[in-house]
């Protein structure tokens, strides 16, 4: 007599469905992990492609990326120090050009929510 046909197991019967459920679960898990890393690392605060920030995205200062690398090797003499001073002073001037996070735009008075009438 021919070998008895084996009854398919539950796993064998639903393997495609199980595969899809597992794939969705793993995708969800990886999304949660990556989102928590995105938020906790501070990358979220730097991401100007978020909704509502696109308007300022084109105002990112491209000059920062163009800051010239000073050579880490070579002689140290008056000429090389002057070359460094020139590069450094240029960036120092940019750093001090505007008082960053200055003013008081968040004070209750500025927002019109202070206690005074």
């Amino acid at each position: 007599m021919a070998a008895e046909e084996q009854k398919p197991t539950f796993l064998g019967q639903h393997r495609f469905l199980i595969l899809i459920i597992l794939a969705v679960f793993i995708t969800g898990l990886l999304t949660v992990i990556s989102m928590s890393m995105y938020i906790s690392s501070g990358a979220a605060q730097l991401d100007l492609s978020r909704p509502g920030y696109r308007a300022v995205q084109d105002q990112v200062d491209r000059e920062n990326r163009a800051v010239q690398n000073y050579s880490a090797v070579g002689p140290v003499n008056e000429e090389s120090i002057n070359e460094f001073k020139e590069l450094y002073d240029e960036q120092l001037k940019r750093a001090k050009a505007v008082e960053a996070f200055g003013g008081d735009p968040l004070s209750p008075k500025s927002l019109g929510i202070d206690a005074a009438n």
């Binding site: 730097l46 300022v56 120092l92 750093a95």
Partner: peptide, 15 residues
């Protein structure tokens, strides 16, 4: 402030 953070961060990091 988000824009300022990006610009300042890049500048200070570059220096």
């Amino acid at each position: 402030d988000a824009l300022l953070r990006v610009n300042r961060g890049q500048l200070y990091e570059s220096i």
